[in-house]
C-alpha cells in the first residue's frame, strides 16, 4: 500500500505529472472517438443517399 502511495506521489510532483498524463489520454481518446464517429456518420449517410438515388432511378 505504501509502495503504491510513493508511486502515486511521484516525489511530491504527482499533482503535476498525473494531470499531464491524464489530459494526454483524454485528448487522444477524444480524437479517436471523434474520428470514428465522423466515419460512421458519413458511411451511414452515404448509404441512405445511395439507396434514395437507386430507388428514384428505378422510378
Amino acid at each position: 500500500m505504501s509502495q503504491l502511495f510513493t508511486f502515486l506521489d511521484m516525489s511530491g510532483y504527482g499533482n503535476f505529472i498525473w494531470p499531464a498524463f491524464g489530459i494526454s489520454a483524454i485528448i487522444l481518446l477524444g480524437i479517436l472517438v471523434h474520428s470514428q464517429r465522423f466515419l460512421k456518420r458519413t458511411e451511414k449517410e452515404l448509404e441512405t443517399l445511395n439507396n434514395q438515388v437507386n430507388t428514384s432511378d428505378i422510378a
Binding site: 480524437i31 465522423f38 452515404l46
Partner: peptide, 11 residues
Amino acid sequence: MLIVRMRAEFN
C-alpha cells in the same frame, strides 16, 4: 487517425 478521417472526408 489520418486514415480514418480521410475515409470520412472522401465520404
